[in-house]
Simulated scan of single mutants.
Amino acid sequence: MPTGIAIRDVREQLFDAADRILLRDGPSGLTSRAVTTEAGCAKGVLHRHFEDFDAFLAQFVLDRVDRMDAQAAALRGAAGTGTVADNLSGALAAVFGSVAVAIVALVTFRDELRARLRETWPAGVPVLTEAAVMFGAYLAAERDLGRVAADADVDTLGAMLVGSGHLLYADRTGTPPTPDAVRRVVDTVLVGALRA
């Protein structure tokens, strides 16, 4: 006899619940009980799909990194349109306006999660390193189009954008930076890199 109702796409339901908890309560509020309660399912559901809670968290972080692929493709597709600074300002706000800042705090907060992530992600914090790669790839595409200087170190510029963006958005409970503040950071990072 069935003991409950089948849950469709349980992983996604649990990951979405983790997003909401991280954004609302921060990493200290993210427990297996909180996730299953938020997802509306029994605690055992999480443990049927994941070895333990840190395995769940590692898969959650990697899933959120994978979701950045669409954003990276859209940013690369914007090469040659609008202005480089506008495109990067919008992308920077989108990255850090998402759950990314909370994921950085989560990875920093949990030693076992960092250890699990190192098994498949050898360096850096996954969402931040992925964002740096995304910005570097976009800047490389703009360099190929002649809108960024041929000698620009696009990988370093991408990392600088991520570091500066993280500093702007690091206080998840405070007022988010204004679009003008984000644009000033982008303009400052790009000084000397843009072709006139």
Rank of each mutant, 00 (worst) to 15 (best):
A72M: 05
V148W: 04
A102F: 02
L46E: 09
L75T: 07
R183G: 10
A149T: 12
E142H: 01
Q59C: 01
D171V: 12
F15W: 14
A18V: 07
T108P: 03
G90A: 12
L30V: 09
M160H: 11
Y138Q: 01
R24S: 08
F53V: 00
T178R: 08
L194E: 05
L194F: 07
A42V: 08
L92M: 05
L157K: 03
R20G: 14
L30N: 00
D151V: 12
H47K: 01
G82R: 11
T83Q: 01
G90R: 04
A196L: 11
T81Q: 12
L167Y: 05
P179S: 10
D54T: 13
Y169Q: 07
R114H: 07
R118Y: 06
R183Y: 09
A85T: 09
A17K: 06
F56I: 01
V185L: 14
F96E: 00
V35H: 06
G82N: 12
A149G: 12
Y169W: 15
D69C: 13
K43Q: 12
A79M: 09
T129Y: 07
D153V: 02
P179Q: 08
E38A: 08
L62E: 07
A72H: 09
F109C: 12
F109I: 04
R33L: 14
F53P: 04
R184K: 14
A6D: 14
A131G: 15
A141I: 00
R183W: 00
A42I: 02
G44I: 06
E142W: 02
T129R: 12
Q71D: 14
T178W: 00
D52H: 09
A131T: 07
T108G: 13
A39N: 02
R8I: 09
D52F: 00
V99Y: 02
L23N: 08
A34V: 06
T178P: 07
G4S: 15
T129V: 11
S32V: 05
T156Q: 08
A93Q: 04
I7G: 03
A58G: 01
A115T: 15
G82H: 10
L106A: 05
G29S: 08
E51L: 13
F56A: 00
T178A: 13
I103D: 02
G136L: 01
A79R: 04
F50W: 14
V162R: 00
A123R: 11
S32E: 06
R183S: 15
T3S: 14
T129N: 10
G4K: 11
A196D: 11
R33Y: 08
V148C: 01
A100R: 03
H49W: 05
V182E: 04
A152M: 02
L117D: 02
E119N: 12
A91S: 09
I21W: 05
F56P: 00
T31L: 08
R33P: 00
A39I: 05
D19L: 05
R143M: 03
G158D: 04
A115H: 15
P122L: 09
R48Q: 15
D25T: 02
H49F: 08
L168E: 13
R184E: 15
R48I: 11
A105D: 13
